[in-house]
Amino acid sequence: MTMKVLVPVKRVVDYNVKVRVAADGSGVETQGVKMSMNPFDEIAVEEAVRLREKGAAKEVVVVTVGAQAAQDVLRTAMAMGADRAILVRTDDTLEPRAVANVLKAIATREEAGLICMGKQAIDDDMNATGQILAAKLGWPQGTFASAVTVADGRIEVAREIDGGTEVVSLTLPAVVTADLRLNEPRYASLPNIMKARKKPLETVEIDSLGVDTASRLTVVSVAEPAERKEGVKVNSAAELVEKLKTEAKVI
């Protein structure tokens, strides 16, 4: 098998960190907080590495789009088993559409046979880059994957849908986006972190790709969600059911 798997990853505020909205409402404070690889991307890296270990892929290439500091998640991905990494360097924050344009250029250059990525990033919660990328490449997509099998030039993807699982069979090349149950990612062990320091990491300046990275959304403001107001106490289950039916209209 000569398939190359491209795994796009994103550096995000660590999921343990309680984020807070900046006092001026411009966004969320990201200065000085712990950053990590997006958890869904870790799952994608793990799946790609497993495909290579099973012989279904030849090479796993990780790519991220971001500032210089984003290379630490590339190192983590390589410690988990990715073979090499590409940092597409930019100091701007890009929207999924723009990221998809960048990834399309990289996927084309690398002649990727499969793109395996997290279903969404836990910062902007967009859940869109994989689908947009698949559309732009004209590739089929297997989103929210909970299992994948590669055989005979196709990939079978079990997808998490409301209330169950759907299985689709896609021609390769394809885009797969990972959901939580796809696997449990391995630890980046200390020996592997040490070895990952020596794996190749290429830096590509975003401008050299010549793709459209403009924003289509303007962030007007970012606010904390309103705190819920204390409701009313009711005296009996019957009264509760009555209120749920007539007042809240929820049952």
């Binding site: 505020v13 309680k18 984020v19 909205v21 969320v28 929207e95 999924p96 559409r97 836990i122 910062d123 902007d124 919660d125 967009m126 859940n127 869109a128 947009i132 924003s215 289509r216 959304l217 303007t218 962030v219 007007v220 403001s221 970012v222 606010a223 904390e224 969600p225």
Partner: peptide, 29 residues
Amino acid sequence: QPIPDVVEIKDVDTFVRPIYAGNALATVR
């Protein structure tokens, strides 16, 4: 650029959507 998970429509091109697992609400145009 799609706009997912809209929780409030401000006007025809301005929307509110949760980010950071609902710990913040972004208004985007």
